[in-house]
Nucleic acid binder design. Structure first.
Lengths: 159, 159
DNA sequence: GTGCGTGCAAAATCTTTGCATACGC
DNA sequence: GCGTATGCAAAGATTTTGCACGCAC
């Protein structure tokens, strides 16, 4: 089994009762093969992954699963609205999506502006800063993300 | 004089010797009427403004200054590269730009996800968090911005 | 069977680019 | 006058949408 197929294969333990699947049966929504494949891709690639719509499309194709780009866009948007994915606007050229994992809440991104390499980190004070700013202005906080733009070690050398 | 024209008019005191103008005379660059108009628009609208390329285009049109969108995109990109504007990726639908002011360094954004209302705030601990994350990973820091997504008071009521 | 979801292609956005012309310096 | 900047229109890139068909429930 190649790497991409491994990403797509649901582990038997997670096969049933995942909260995402439960949500996809609510309010008239349906759990279609396409949605399950997209879901599995994110779940099995872990929470450190930042995939664009195109990435999802290509990864699925490599695993011999053809899902139209239109469906991918519609599904990604749906999963974001349902709160299962986060939408990131890190670098140029399109949005990226990552699994909204409970292991890993409120993490932030350190992005190399040259090559796009991305590291994640957490910081309690950042979360607090967002909370305080929202309160002061009477806003109701949804989430806060710190984007740190920087040059990674490799790109510093090749400069 | 209407509001938009007021935004466009350079104050006499700032007319000469602004650092941006100096920069626009360097390395073979030219200070054209188009660039000056775009510059003036940002300077006179203050540092709390977040304008898209389309916004700039419309504001200039309202002030009877026709500058092509292509030129606006080229100029905005130039001003970002020169460090005089910051490029923001706050909400859906295109990037926004704001003046990089020294009065107002390293500030962050609180954005209403419903209506797009944006408030700014500063926080020293956020800046430090970015610095620490960059150091830990061997990255060279460029800048860090905290985006807080939230619902503004008005949109909480109309929900 | 009902009606939500999909695929396809076309359209809508947003942004960039090639080329001839204009103009700052 | 040289060479950069502009305007225009066309091309690119990304994302959305209309419509007929298919399939989850």
């Amino acid at each position: 089994m190649n790497k991409v197929k491994a990403l797509l294969a649901s582990s038997p333990l997670k096969q049933y009762g995942r909260p995402l699947e439960v949500g996809l049966h609510q309010e008239g929504r349906r759990l279609t093969p396409q949605r399950r494949k997209i879901l599995d891709l994110f779940e099995n690639s872990g929470s450190g992954n930042h995939l664009s719509a195109e990435d999802v499309h290509h990864l699925l194709l490599e695993a011999k699963s053809r899902v139209s780009l239109a469906t991918i866009y519609r599904t990604l948007r749906l999963l974001v609205e349902m709160g299962f994915l986060y939408e990131l606007e890190l670098s140029e050229g399109g949005h990226r999506f990552e699994l909204a994992s409970n292991d890993h809440p409120d993490h932030h991104h350190l992005v190399c502006v040259r090559c796009g390499r991305t590291e994640e980190f957490e910081n309690e004070q950042v979360i607090q800063a967002g909370r305080i700013a929202a309160e002061k202005n009477g806003f109701k906080l949804i989430e806060s993300t710190l984007n740190v733009r920087a040059l990674c070690p490799g790109c510093q050398h090749n400069n």
